[in-house]
Design a protein around this nucleic acid. Structure first.
Lengths: 341, 341
DNA sequence: AGTAGTGGTGTAAACGTTTTACACAATATC
DNA sequence: GATATTGTGTAAAACGTTTACACCACTACT
């Protein structure tokens, strides 16, 4: 495994331009940075050479030289690009970032803590101006360290404990409560919950809402009806199978996120069961094409785009004023009634 | 708009470690790089300080120093992160990249040529080892320049003309043909095509397949039944409305991609029409949850994950051997028969 | 005992920028 | 005619690395 990489494609430096133009590199630099203190004639001459050589300042050198200059680069670290929720959050971030002259580089860690660390390291040393991250859990040491170091960070979807940080999250407990409450009001008695990764705060908060709603309706809590997965499509498929295979299967299922919902739907359809007659379903996370599902899915909508937008706004404000007090934004969810329960 | 950014969070350098450990920076560097030529005792001492100070090498400085060293970073430039097809491609890339010790940074240009240029510039100056890109069109000058410069690049989904470059694409014409052929065989007579952005090569190739299939079945070509959009969900919604509002509406629709399909479905469902009785639909691009749509969607499946995987493999091979001849991989599509037509 | 090797360490240069201090002229002021 | 003032350019330092080279203290041979 050689790394010699002789393929170093040529890079034009200030030096070359200076030489060819017969001036010093400082002069060329001044021309590049539109410093007025250079003779118009010299400027013209230099500009001509710059064009000829297609000179482009080297960002790496630039950033090394003055580390406190803005790179106009923001990092986004998300747990799962397959989840349409995060994609929507990303779109919100993107729109705001772009409006403010920031470019975005995105890293996807697939719910893998090791990958997350790697990407955080990379982003940090790329000297980005700030980043938006959905930490694996509330005590994510790596993220906490970065926050403490003073790197502008905004957390989305999941907060952090033990450190002051801006965050934009959603009322998970309430959202889950309203979903299960709706199920119970509709007469369902054996309501199951398919959870995402239990270490993710939102999974636990949703479970909390689920439990409270059951209690509020005097429904018994059956541990068999709570299943823990890894927040991905496959676990939705598998755990839904397990539930349906129970001696006393549920009459309704509350799915912990987007991907789980899709997985559960797959299982139900493969078995030829009818929703909601045979089993009802209500999902956490709405998708814009939920109306085209069979049947149109009832779901708890998170304002994903809004989350991204607000997070980006917070981040940019923090970059411009690192001393501002941190804020914790909690957005509301909305129950989208359709026909899956 | 100040950019002073006094928030220069402290960065621990080799120098500080060296000072605290009472050695020279060269020694610290050697410890970091696991150079055997350092006394075990010294090594231990230095490692301790490194831990204490949480020292992390600065990638920017590192890369400036030896430009020909690998950054172990690959760039991925994709047109639309909302499109599940690209997400799946990305997953393929990711798995291969990660296996080979490469990290990925992704940039989404939202079909916007200006954004694409910006991101290409950024990635280039981040001195990535190579990149995978789906160019806006076949004569994308920026990408062509980069290829000519010698930066390892693999194109996916769309090729490039006038330059030798590795590419991984799909049999768009054949795929489209098989879809429309299937429609015609099933007895549909007025088959519409909702196209994505016409400047995208794949859009044109799919249209070609559509036209050939009509011709093969002796069906007349009605220009009113071909609609051009921008490859996004909204255009699917709108163009489908236009088609259904026609005096002589189509009896079947062939949608040019994922997002268009979802948009068209939305329109059809909002109007309370039955698929396939009132209007049939067949989509380009399959999704793993196509089975859960109403009705289960018949679609042309592109091996998206495979495309990403192959592209990443090509890229890594090219990085390791810049002189190898370029290859053009053309993968097959597959018709997934379900019940939407 | 002198030369040659060895292992461990430090020094200094280089990467491509920007910024600072400063040199040098030309002009204006007293 | 000496002294500021201004405009224009140059040289050098700095950012954090890596690495070629020099050095030193040993040991191990002739």
């Amino acid at each position: 495994m050689k790394n010699s990489n002789e393929n170093v494609y040529k890079i034009v430096s200030l030096n070359e331009v200076a030489e060819k133009a017969g001036v010093s590199i400082a002069t060329v630099s001044r021309v590049m940075n539109e410093n007025p203190k250079v003779h118009p004639e010299t400027r013209l001459k230099v500009q001509k050479v710059i064009k000829e050589l297609k000179y482009q300042p080297n960002r790496v050198a630039k950033r090394l030289r003055n580390r406190n200059a803005s790179s106009n680069l923001l990092g986004v670290v998300i747990p799962d690009i397959q989840n349409p929720f995060y994609v929507e959050v990303f779109r919100g971030i993107e729109d705001v970032a772009y409006e403010n002259q920031y470019a975005l580089i995105m890293c996807n860690f697939s719910q893998d803590e090791k990958k997350e660390k790697l990407y955080l390291d990379i982003l940090q040393s790329e000297s980005i101006d700030g980043m938006i991250v959905a930490p694996t859990d509330e005590r994510d040491q790596k993220v906490i360290d970065l926050v403490k170091k003073g790197l502008p960070i905004v957390c989305v979807d999941r907060g952090l404990i033990g450190v002051d940080v801006d965050e934009v999250v959603v009322e998970n407990r309430n959202g889950a409560f309203s979903a299960v409450d709706h199920l119970a009001r509709s007469g369902y008695q054996r309501i199951a919950y398919i959870s995402g990764l239990p270490q993710i705060p939102s999974s636990r908060q949703r479970e909390q809402g689920y439990r409270e709603a059951l209690a509020a309706h005097g429904l018994p809590l059956d541990q068999d009806l709570i299943r823990y997965g890894d927040s991905r499509h496959e676990s939705g498929v598998k755990l839904c199978e397990e539930l349906l295979d129970l001696p006393k299967p549920p009459d309704a299922i509350f799915t912990g996120n987007n991907l789980i919902t899709l997985g559960a739907l797959e299982t139900i359809h493969k078995r030829g069961l009818h929703i909601p007659r045979d089993v009802a379903i209500i999902g956490f996370d709405d998708m814009y094409w939920s109306i085209s599902l069979n049947p149109p899915l009832t779901a708890v909508r998170q304002p994903a785009y809004e989350i991204g937008k607000r997070a980006a706004e917070q981040l940019i404000m923090r970059i411009n004023d690192p001393t501002r007090p941190t804020v914790s934004m909690i957005l509301k969810t909305e129950l989208m009634l359709r026909s899956s329960c």
